[in-house]
């Protein structure tokens, strides 16, 4: 693979990282800590929303984020022909 391709592959990877880590930050530190008070005024079922993000919601999102990353990277590896045979 040419150097330019390697660089492109790496940049795409960094883009995915940036996007996924932003979500990671927003659900935990954003919704769960910084914005917890305003979000607590919204109630869904028996949960105050901010409390829910802090104690359960963020964890569900974490699991999802990793599997989304797995999916994106497997696709990217194939596209750039760097997947493991």
């Amino acid at each position: 693979m040419s150097d330019k391709n390697v660089q492109n592959y790496w940049n795409r990877n960094l883009q995915y990282l940036g996007m996924l880590l932003t979500i990671w930050f927003i659900v935990s530190y954003g919704f769960g800590i910084i914005l917890v008070e305003p979000l607590n005024t919204i109630k869904i079922g028996g949960f105050k929303l901010g409390f829910w993000f802090a104690q359960q919601g963020s964890i569900y999102v974490f699991v999802l984020l990793i599997f989304v990353y797995v999916y994106l990277m497997n696709k990217l590896d194939k596209e750039y022909d760097v997947d493991e045979k």
Binding site: Q55, S58, I66
Partner: peptide
């Protein structure tokens, strides 16, 4: 109470960093 979330998030969120970084 609510504050306990620091352990819940703190001991799970690291896995996102592990998997991605």
């Amino acid at each position: 109470g609510y504050q306990g979330a620091q352990y819940l998030m703190g001991w799970t969120g690291g896995y996102v960093l592990l998997a991605l970084l």
